[in-house]
Measured scan of single mutants.
Amino acid sequence: MEVRTIKVFTTVDNINLHTQVVDMSMTYGQQFGPTYLDGADVTKIKPHNSHEGKTFYVLPNDDTLRVEAFEYYHTTDPSFLGRYMSALNHTKKWKYPQVNGLTSIKWADNNCYLATALLTLQQIELKFNPPALQDAYYRARAGEAANFCALILAYCNKTVGELGDVRETMSYLFQHANLDSCKRVLNVVCKTCGQQQTTLKGVEAVMYMGTLSYEQFKKGVQIPCTCGKQATKYLVQQESPFVMMSAPPAQYELKHGTFTCASEYTGNYQCGHYKHITSKETLYCIDGALLTKSSEYKGPITDVFYKENSYTTTIK
């Protein structure tokens, strides 16, 4: 009895394709271990004539594949690729409408935090270190965002349907971005203890939790000093293409032309909904596939993004 075979390709990165001759009487799992086709788990399936010449994702289970996976995804987590594939199996079914010149995501599976993050990423200057993220990001900007969303979920250790947080998501993504040249110098002034300067680099240099107003941050924000008295913390120097200011959701007025974009969060910790506000020729609110415009805006804002380049204080 002759062994019926077909020729397929296996890959971990969709760049390096490895030619395989597979036995049609055995499952993919018996031949390769966990195997995925377009995100779908085909591990328990036997090869079919229609699979001839198709590319299958496999887990990096030998040295060659491990090197290829690390170079593309910059992670050695053995569960990463499987999590990416199972997320992709959902995100490829989502709709990605162009809204006001940006790629958004039609609401499904509690994905409003991903839509808000995706919209924000198209408006701030950011370059990702893992080629996987950078490639998928370019495709997302062009309207094909399924891979990018699935990668975000995998890097953030999230599953489809789980509630997510924009600030946490951005923080994970910033860790995989090139923020080497970003720098922030802060000064804390206390009447009792004097003053202390701190220099922050990388992710810490672009994120701040405690106030939404970048102007206020430049002037000074009140913080408790270690001595128990009130101290003032203010920005001395900022070198970065953008800054992200966050605070627990509270009524906040966004003035046209003073910011790049913002995240609105309605609801409580267990259950809520994100919308995205962007400042173009007027203010726009993007909620999944829905767009509304207004000249002014007041609502429960939790993150505001500002364009920056270089700032030095005039406070002496």
Results as ranks from 00 to 15, higher is better:
89 N>M: 08
240 S>K: 01
199 T>W: 05
3 V>A: 14
147 N>A: 10
91 T>I: 08
313 T>G: 11
236 V>F: 06
92 K>V: 09
273 H>L: 03
165 D>I: 00
224 P>T: 15
27 T>P: 12
169 T>I: 10
31 Q>C: 13
115 A>W: 02
276 H>K: 01
167 R>P: 04
151 L>C: 03
26 M>A: 15
279 S>I: 01
208 Y>D: 06
130 P>T: 09
209 M>W: 15
15 I>Q: 12
29 G>E: 11
105 I>S: 02
125 E>F: 01
231 A>G: 03
160 V>K: 04
86 S>G: 12
219 K>T: 12
47 P>T: 04
3 V>F: 14
154 A>S: 07
244 M>Q: 00
234 Y>C: 05
105 I>R: 06
28 Y>P: 06
213 S>H: 03
239 E>L: 09
98 Q>T: 14
204 E>R: 13
212 L>Y: 00
300 P>D: 13
17 L>W: 07
144 E>H: 11
312 T>Y: 10
42 V>I: 11
124 I>S: 03
261 C>Q: 01
106 K>E: 15
35 T>Q: 05
148 F>A: 04
313 T>C: 15
51 H>S: 05
92 K>Y: 05
267 G>R: 07
278 T>H: 08
261 C>L: 02
314 T>W: 13
230 Q>E: 11
224 P>Q: 14
301 I>F: 00
235 L>W: 00
291 L>T: 15
250 A>F: 07
308 E>Q: 07
308 E>R: 05
199 T>L: 07
302 T>C: 10
194 G>M: 00
234 Y>D: 02
183 K>A: 07
164 G>A: 02
103 T>M: 05
258 T>Q: 13
49 N>K: 12
243 V>H: 03
186 L>T: 14
186 L>D: 07
162 E>S: 07
142 A>P: 04
235 L>Q: 00
253 E>G: 08
125 E>C: 07
153 L>T: 02
262 A>L: 00
235 L>K: 00
123 Q>A: 07
263 S>L: 06
299 G>Y: 00
282 T>R: 10
297 Y>K: 01
149 C>W: 07
283 L>V: 15
3 V>S: 14
247 A>W: 00
7 K>T: 14
224 P>L: 13
228 G>P: 00
229 K>C: 09
35 T>W: 04
121 L>M: 08
178 N>Q: 11
196 Q>C: 09
227 C>A: 03
77 D>F: 05
182 C>I: 02
12 V>E: 07
53 G>A: 14
257 G>I: 00
153 L>S: 04
258 T>E: 15
239 E>F: 08
279 S>V: 06
264 E>T: 06
243 V>E: 00
7 K>H: 15
11 T>D: 06
87 A>T: 07
254 L>M: 02
65 L>D: 07
305 F>E: 00
237 Q>Y: 14
182 C>E: 02
68 E>C: 05
73 Y>Q: 06
169 T>S: 04
106 K>Y: 09
196 Q>M: 12
187 N>R: 14
253 E>N: 10
180 D>Y: 10
141 R>K: 15
300 P>V: 14
102 L>G: 06
287 D>C: 00
4 R>M: 12
92 K>C: 07
196 Q>E: 10
103 T>N: 02
255 K>E: 13
104 S>E: 06
87 A>F: 02
118 L>Q: 06
56 F>L: 11
275 K>L: 04
143 G>S: 03
123 Q>G: 04
167 R>E: 03
175 Q>T: 08
267 G>N: 08
27 T>A: 13
216 Q>M: 09
272 G>Q: 02
61 N>P: 06
238 Q>C: 01
199 T>C: 12
235 L>R: 01
94 W>D: 07
284 Y>W: 10
225 C>F: 00
40 A>F: 13
114 L>I: 12
246 S>F: 06
164 G>W: 06
314 T>S: 14
248 P>H: 11
224 P>R: 15
145 A>N: 03
250 A>V: 10
166 V>Y: 06
277 I>P: 00
113 Y>D: 02
239 E>I: 13
19 T>F: 09
143 G>M: 05
241 P>C: 05
304 V>F: 01
90 H>G: 11
178 N>K: 13
128 F>W: 14
276 H>E: 00
37 L>C: 12
102 L>D: 05
7 K>A: 14
252 Y>T: 15
136 A>D: 05
145 A>I: 02
123 Q>S: 08
263 S>E: 00
10 T>G: 06
288 G>W: 03
249 P>H: 01
27 T>E: 15
186 L>N: 04
130 P>D: 03
237 Q>G: 05
281 E>M: 01
102 L>N: 06
102 L>F: 09
24 M>N: 15
76 T>L: 14
276 H>N: 06
209 M>T: 15
159 T>K: 15
138 Y>H: 14
67 V>H: 14
198 T>K: 14
296 E>S: 13
217 F>I: 14
62 D>Q: 08
139 R>G: 09
213 S>V: 05
188 V>T: 15
287 D>H: 00
266 T>Q: 13
20 Q>R: 13
46 K>F: 11
111 N>W: 04
307 K>W: 03
184 R>G: 15
168 E>V: 08
193 C>V: 03
23 D>P: 10
206 V>C: 09
61 N>V: 09
272 G>W: 00
180 D>T: 10
238 Q>W: 00
39 G>L: 07
261 C>D: 01
285 C>S: 13
74 H>A: 06
142 A>Q: 15
132 A>D: 02
188 V>I: 11
85 M>R: 06
41 D>P: 12
268 N>T: 10
229 K>I: 08
132 A>C: 06
291 L>N: 13
93 K>D: 11
313 T>A: 14
300 P>R: 13
316 K>G: 15
185 V>Y: 03
288 G>E: 02
174 F>H: 02
80 F>I: 03
132 A>F: 05
82 G>H: 15
168 E>H: 13
283 L>Q: 01
89 N>A: 11
147 N>K: 13
173 L>M: 15
192 T>E: 13
94 W>F: 01
176 H>N: 07
151 L>G: 02
144 E>Y: 10
276 H>Q: 03
307 K>A: 14
103 T>W: 10
150 A>I: 02
56 F>A: 06
289 A>E: 15
20 Q>Y: 10
170 M>K: 01
208 Y>E: 07
22 V>W: 04
244 M>A: 01
98 Q>R: 14
221 V>R: 03
136 A>Y: 09
90 H>E: 10
143 G>E: 02
82 G>L: 14
64 T>D: 10
178 N>H: 09
218 K>C: 07
258 T>P: 00
76 T>F: 12
12 V>N: 08
199 T>F: 06
163 L>A: 15
119 L>E: 03
54 K>I: 14
232 T>E: 06
158 K>C: 01
155 Y>G: 01
14 N>K: 09
186 L>C: 12
227 C>F: 00
24 M>P: 12
173 L>R: 04
313 T>K: 14
251 Q>N: 14
67 V>P: 07
291 L>P: 06
284 Y>M: 14
234 Y>H: 07
197 Q>L: 09
144 E>N: 12
255 K>C: 11
101 G>T: 06
148 F>I: 08
211 T>S: 09
109 D>K: 05
5 T>Q: 14
120 T>R: 01
270 Q>L: 10
307 K>T: 15
198 T>W: 11
22 V>L: 11
174 F>M: 07
80 F>P: 03
159 T>R: 13
184 R>T: 04
36 Y>F: 11
74 H>T: 02
79 S>V: 12
33 G>M: 04
193 C>Q: 04
136 A>E: 14
240 S>V: 02
69 A>S: 10
297 Y>N: 03
290 L>S: 15
192 T>Y: 10
303 D>M: 03
91 T>N: 06
117 A>P: 01
169 T>M: 06
37 L>K: 11
273 H>V: 02
133 L>R: 02
217 F>E: 01
197 Q>V: 10
40 A>Y: 14
170 M>A: 00
41 D>I: 11
250 A>M: 11
285 C>K: 10
94 W>N: 03
242 F>W: 08
294 S>G: 10
15 I>C: 10
270 Q>A: 15
287 D>R: 00
103 T>D: 03
201 K>N: 12
149 C>I: 10
105 I>M: 03
192 T>C: 09
294 S>W: 12
296 E>N: 12
114 L>R: 02
251 Q>F: 13
52 E>V: 13
162 E>F: 01
222 Q>T: 11
93 K>M: 10
184 R>D: 01
287 D>A: 00
83 R>V: 04
288 G>S: 02
218 K>Q: 05
